[in-house]
């Protein structure tokens, strides 16, 4: 990768990932700072696996991930552990901690009290901040997990189907919030089945195949 390319924010180069017996990749693409980049592709092509590997939660077997010019992983080596990457993650399974309220979860990841209230209002979660995940509906739980991901204002936001469980009206609000985060300079990577309006697309065509939207 060239020095000039590092300004792009996230750079993924020939990344190959394993998850159980499933091998995904190689993936090569860039995601710019201050923009939403959407990753689309059919079921089983490795979209969620790719996000897990960028976050440092799944081991890569080859290739590399760089962010803001800093190497995060190189081949099988993790250079920066997940908790030092300034990442906000909305995983497919949400991963909400059932013993903590929505507010406590957002505080725990480093969200400021005011930012949490502000973001909760934007996500229509104001009345739910002191509730625990078990008392939330599926859509509310997904927005709570999104709140936890965005509350610390991460430099890189990784979102797996962030509007998948939302009604159209709420989905539009969620999109606004995500685009607002991108506008503040964060790099936002969204895995989605449908195209994200205004986003830079990266399309993964076949199961574990090369992306066509990236610059490989």
């Amino acid at each position: 990768m060239t020095e000039g390319a590092s300004a792009a924010g996230l750079e993924v180069e020939r990344l190959r990932v394993t998850r159980g017996g499933f091998r995904a990749g190689p993936f090569t693409f860039r995601a710019e700072r201050g923009r939403v980049t959407s990753i689309t592709g059919p079921n089983g092509c490795g979209k969620s696996t790719l996000l897990g590997s960028i976050a440092g939660l799944l081991p890569a077997v080859d290739g590399g991930v760089r962010f803001a010019g800093e190497g995060w992983s190189e081949k099988e080596r993790t250079l920066v552990p997940p908790h030092q990457r300034s990442i906000g993650l909305l995983p497919q399974g949400l991963g909400l901690w059932p013993h903590l309220s929505v507010r406590e979860q957002a505080r725990l990841v480093g969200g400021g009290a005011e930012a949490i209230v502000e973001m909760a209002e934007a996500l229509d979660l104001s009345g739910l901040l002191d509730r625990r995940p078990a008392s939330l509906s599926g859509g509310e739980a997904q927005r709570a997990a999104l709140l936890r991901a965005v509350a610390p204002r991460p430099a890189l936001l990784l979102l797996d189907e962030p509007t998948g469980q939302q009604f159209p009206g709420t989905a539009a609000r969620v999109r606004e919030v995500i685009e607002g985060i991108a506008a503040t300079g964060s790099t936002v990577l969204v895995v989605t089945h449908r195209a994200w309006p205004g986003a830079s697309p990266v399309e993964l065509f076949r199961r574990g195949g090369e992306p066509s939207g990236g610059a490989d």
Binding site: G52, H83, I87, P91, G95, W97, L108, R148
Partner: peptide, 24 residues
């Protein structure tokens, strides 16, 4: 659950152990 554990790995390890893994 693995999703909870994965989310906890984005926290500093000591915080993850004290606030998530031990209570769970």
């Amino acid at each position: 659950p693995s999703a909870e554990r994965a989310a906890a790995r984005l926290l500093p390890p000591s915080v993850a152990r004290r606030r998530i893994r031990l209570p769970r």
